[in-house]
Design a protein around this nucleic acid. Structure first.
Length: 190
DNA sequence: TAGGCCATCTGGTCCT
DNA sequence: AGGACCAGATGGCCTA
């Protein structure tokens, strides 16, 4: 299995035959994509139509209204791009805290989420097992957090089982099993 | 070459 | 009203 180390995304801009090169790139804070404004906004009037009168301000005509709506779209695109970058950073951070994964294979997003879910569940199982074992000898000497935790966990699992989870997944042991199976399959490259 | 994965654009909806 | 969020569409890159 080879790595998926891709170069930064470079998209070829679709040609907007009406737009000048300045129009295609101006006011765009280093987007790096060049794909902006390809759908829906392609029939812009060329710059200059509805030009401003010398000197004073002028009431917005249809063309400048279009320009400001184009401007809003560009800003919105940029925000969306930033949002997705933040999301991807979060995915990367998550990848880095999931152990036992081959370093040369970058997990896909869906793999990351699935593996993380099962990892969390297996950790939960471990904690519950350890805490209930440790607290067993302390009954009658104060609040027993272990059993309470376990009761809470069981409630959560029952609710989940009534929803989308299968019967195996509702069992604590199932999480550990599933997690190790997943880890194994990643090692195998399947 | 097909299929998987991904980045980006876009318009609609929700939220503040 | 404006920004955040979301999902669908589109197209590029990569691997088997």
């Amino acid at each position: 299995m080879k790595t998926k180390n891709r170069p930064p995304r470079r998209r070829t801009p679709l040609q907007d035959t009406e737009a000048t090169p300045e129009e295609q790139t101006a006011d765009r804070p280093q987007s790096g994509s060049g794909m902006e404004l390809t759908k829906g906004l392609r029939s812009r009037t060329p710059r200059g139509a509805g030009a401003r009168a010398e000197g004073g301000r002028r009431r917005q005509g249809p063309s400048s209204r279009r320009e400001s709506s184009v401007q809003r779209r560009l800003e919105s695109n940029e925000r969306e791009r930033q949002r997705m970058h933040k999301l991807n950073n979060a995915f990367q951070a998550l990848r880095e805290v999931i152990p036992h994964v081959r370093a040369d294979k970058k997990l896909s997003k869906i793999e990351t989420l699935t593996l993380a879910k099962n990892y969390i569940k297996s950790l939960t199982t471990t904690i519950l097992t350890m805490s209930s074992g440790r607290l067993q000898g302390l009954e009658g000497q104060g609040p027993a957090q272990g059993p309470k935790l376990y009761q809470h966990y069981q409630q959560q699992q029952q609710q989940s089982a009534g929803g989308t989870l299968g019967a195996t997944e509702a069992q604590p042991q199932g999480h550990l099993q599933r997690y190790s199976t997943q880890i194994h399959s990643f090692w195998e490259g399947t």
